[in-house]
Design a protein around this nucleic acid. Sequence first.
DNA 1: TTCAATTACTACTCATAGGTAGAATTTATA
DNA 2: TATAAATTCTACCTATGAGTAGTAATTGAA
Lengths: 137, 137
Amino acid sequence: MQLSNTSQYAIRMLAYMADKKDSPLINATELSEALHIPYKFLTKIMTELVKADLVVSVRGREGGYSLSKKASDIKVDDILNIFHDSIQDKQCVLGIGFCNGMCKCALHDQWMEPKILLQKMFRDSSLEDIAGKGCKI
Amino acid sequence: MQLSNTSQYAIRMLAYMADKKDSPLINATELSEALHIPYKFLTKIMTELVKADLVVSVRGREGGYSLSKKASDIKVDDILNIFHDSIQDKQCVLGIGFCNGMCKCALHDQWMEPKILLQKMFRDSSLEDIAGKGCKI
DNA sequence: TTCAATTACTACTCATAGGTAGAATTTATA
DNA sequence: TATAAATTCTACCTATGAGTAGTAATTGAA
Ligand code: SF4
Ligand code: SF4
């Protein structure tokens, strides 16, 4: 019951970039060192974020990455969706999900509340909310 | 953000057994067919449940499995613990977890509530609660 | 005693996430 | 133009979860 490593890394990478919104471009070396994420793995993840249009990249010397839009417009859930880590509406704790109405187990109703809270948290929290709270993550 | 396949199977297997509390022993073939879980994988999981003392097994002809205690005394969280799928108190959404007090990100407080609900759900729900609600899972 | 039905053990295969290596490509600057 | 600094691409390696195969051990019943 955890987000994937990749999703966690991606969120932290983007939050760091949002936090340094004064610098126009941030490169992979800086991110890797600041966040202690393996350089090669970080660039691999970043390329996916570029393809998903959350990040724009500038190649070549003096190149780097920057957010493609305002930090307040990038939600955590946008990131989770890229790595198939988002919580689906019909997602069931037991991996079944087709029981409904009259026929449901004891977990069914109990799962609703935390599920909705998690979805809300992911959908409402933007990079701006996460970054710049005085703590590097 | 899902329980592992193994945990999901284990919960369903034990819930099925709790549901048939009149039959003293239930064998792997019946479980496999009723729950559509691959036979060999099911026996592998079951052996772990036996080692964890949630199930007692009887080998040989006319053998099978039975719960080691009352269904109401086996909580979902007991099962998750075996497969390291339980939610830890200090578990952080971003895999960090050492930020505290003054220094926390926007997800920190928001994560508390669903986390506690999930822990409560897993710790309070017993096999008895899950089984026998009129729906085979 | 023999046999069939059962769980347990050992050792594999397969799929996927996590991570690494090296070369190719791009581009500003010297 | 040549070089160095950067991203991107292709291909791999490693660890783990999921699942399978075959055999050994156990035991009730014919
Ligand atoms: S009733 Fe239980 S098993 Fe069925 S979809 Fe709801 S939570 Fe999942
Ligand atoms: S502040 Fe954020 S990153 Fe740090 S432990 Fe809390 S949730 Fe995790």
